[in-house]
Lab assay of single mutants.
Amino acid sequence: EFILQPIHNLLMGDTKEQRILNHVLQHAEPGNAQSVLEAIDTYCEQKEWAMNVGDKKGKIVDAVIQEHQPSVLLELGAYCGYSAVRMARLLSPGARLITIEINPDCAAITQRMVDFAGV
């Protein structure tokens, strides 16, 4: 995967993360976080594997957030924003999600994903 990915990106003209974002923009409903998550899950199941938590493990994350109702949540590494959208949609009003992503391209994609999801 890591050796072939740059070749695939070159042939496709963009990165996997950008392709995931484009899929979301084309297939998800703006302002609907659940729709965004479903679009990412569908893309990763049908098109390309991606390094995200996914729906199965995501339900565990959901349960922890719902049980503890944090007022501040810190995410280290956002990748394409799946977990940020997943967690933010469950936060109480006034709660904050702080996401740190070292890769500026992934940070920009995450910001667009979060904005599109409306969270």
Score class of each variant (00 low, 15 high):
E1Q: 11
E1V: 12
E1G: 12
E1D: 11
E1K: 15
E1A: 15
F2S: 12
F2I: 13
F2Y: 15
F2C: 14
F2V: 15
F2L: 13
I3M: 11
I3N: 10
I3L: 10
I3S: 15
I3F: 11
I3V: 12
I3T: 10
L4R: 06
L4V: 13
L4M: 15
L4P: 08
L4Q: 15
Q5R: 12
Q5E: 06
Q5K: 15
Q5H: 07
Q5P: 11
Q5L: 04
P6H: 03
P6A: 06
P6L: 06
P6T: 09
P6S: 08
P6R: 11
I7F: 12
I7M: 13
I7V: 03
I7N: 14
I7S: 14
I7L: 14
I7T: 01
H8D: 15
H8P: 14
H8L: 14
H8R: 15
H8N: 12
H8Q: 15
H8Y: 13
N9Y: 10
N9H: 13
N9S: 13
N9K: 15
N9T: 12
N9D: 10
N9I: 12
L10R: 12
L10V: 15
L10Q: 14
L10M: 14
L10P: 12
L11I: 13
L11V: 15
L11F: 08
L11P: 09
L11R: 14
L11H: 13
M12K: 05
M12T: 12
M12R: 10
M12L: 10
M12I: 08
M12V: 09
G13S: 07
G13C: 12
G13R: 08
G13V: 14
G13D: 01
G13A: 03
D14E: 14
D14N: 06
D14G: 14
D14V: 11
D14H: 13
D14A: 09
D14Y: 13
T15I: 14
T15P: 07
T15S: 05
T15A: 09
T15N: 11
K16M: 13
K16E: 09
K16R: 12
K16T: 12
K16N: 10
E17A: 14
E17V: 09
E17Q: 06
E17K: 11
E17D: 07
E17G: 15
Q18H: 14
Q18L: 08
Q18K: 12
Q18P: 13
Q18E: 15
Q18R: 10
R19S: 10
R19L: 02
R19H: 10
R19G: 11
R19P: 10
R19C: 04
I20M: 11
I20L: 12
I20T: 06
I20N: 15
I20F: 11
I20S: 13
L21R: 11
L21P: 00
L21Q: 11
L21V: 14
L21M: 11
N22I: 00
N22K: 06
N22T: 05
N22Y: 03
N22S: 10
N22D: 02
H23L: 00
H23D: 00
H23P: 00
H23Q: 01
H23Y: 00
H23N: 00
H23R: 00
V24G: 00
V24L: 00
V24E: 01
V24M: 00
V24A: 00
L25V: 07
L25M: 04
L25R: 03
L25Q: 11
L25P: 13
Q26P: 09
Q26K: 13
Q26E: 08
Q26H: 07
Q26L: 07
Q26R: 02
H27Q: 01
H27N: 05
H27L: 02
H27P: 04
H27R: 08
H27D: 02
H27Y: 01
A28E: 10
A28S: 03
A28G: 05
A28V: 07
A28T: 04
A28P: 03
E29A: 14
E29D: 06
E29Q: 09
E29G: 06
E29V: 11
E29K: 15
P30R: 15
P30L: 08
P30T: 11
P30S: 01
P30A: 12
P30H: 10
G31R: 04
G31W: 12
G31A: 11
G31V: 06
G31E: 09
N32Y: 14
N32T: 10
N32I: 08
N32H: 14
N32K: 13
N32S: 07
N32D: 08
A33T: 08
A33S: 10
A33E: 15
A33P: 04
A33G: 07
A33V: 10
Q34P: 13
Q34K: 12
Q34E: 12
Q34L: 13
Q34R: 14
Q34H: 12
S35N: 11
S35I: 09
S35R: 11
S35G: 05
S35T: 07
S35C: 07
L97R: 11
L97M: 03
L97P: 03
L97V: 01
L97Q: 05
I98F: 05
I98L: 09
I98T: 09
I98V: 04
I98N: 08
I98M: 05
T99P: 04
T99S: 02
T99A: 05
T99I: 02
T99N: 09
I100M: 08
I100N: 03
I100V: 10
I100L: 10
I100T: 07
I100F: 07
I100S: 08
E101A: 10
E101Q: 08
E101G: 04
E101D: 03
E101K: 00
E101V: 01
I102V: 02
I102F: 05
I102S: 10
I102L: 04
I102M: 06
I102T: 02
I102N: 07
N103H: 01
N103S: 01
N103K: 09
N103T: 03
N103I: 01
N103D: 02
N103Y: 00
P104S: 02
P104L: 04
P104H: 06
P104A: 07
P104R: 05
P104T: 03
D105V: 02
D105N: 07
D105Y: 15
D105A: 00
D105G: 08
D105E: 04
D105H: 06
C106W: 09
C106S: 03
C106R: 02
C106G: 06
C106F: 07
C106Y: 06
A107G: 04
A107P: 02
A107S: 09
A107T: 01
A107D: 06
A107V: 00
A108S: 09
A108P: 03
A108T: 00
A108V: 00
A108D: 01
A108G: 00
I109T: 03
I109S: 03
I109M: 06
I109F: 05
I109V: 05
I109N: 01
I109L: 01
T110I: 04
T110N: 03
T110A: 06
T110S: 04
T110P: 07
Q111H: 02
Q111E: 04
Q111R: 01
Q111K: 07
Q111P: 01
Q111L: 04
R112L: 05
R112Q: 08
R112G: 05
R112W: 03
R112P: 04
M113L: 05
M113I: 02
M113R: 06
M113K: 14
M113V: 05
M113T: 01
V114E: 07
V114L: 03
V114A: 04
V114M: 01
V114G: 09
D115E: 02
D115A: 02
D115G: 01
D115N: 05
D115H: 07
D115Y: 14
D115V: 00
F116C: 00
F116V: 02
F116S: 02
F116I: 03
F116L: 08
F116Y: 08
A117G: 02
A117S: 15
A117V: 00
A117P: 04
A117T: 04
A117D: 13
G118C: 08
G118A: 09
G118R: 03
G118S: 02
G118V: 08
G118D: 05
V119A: 05
V119M: 06
V119E: 13
V119G: 06
V119L: 09
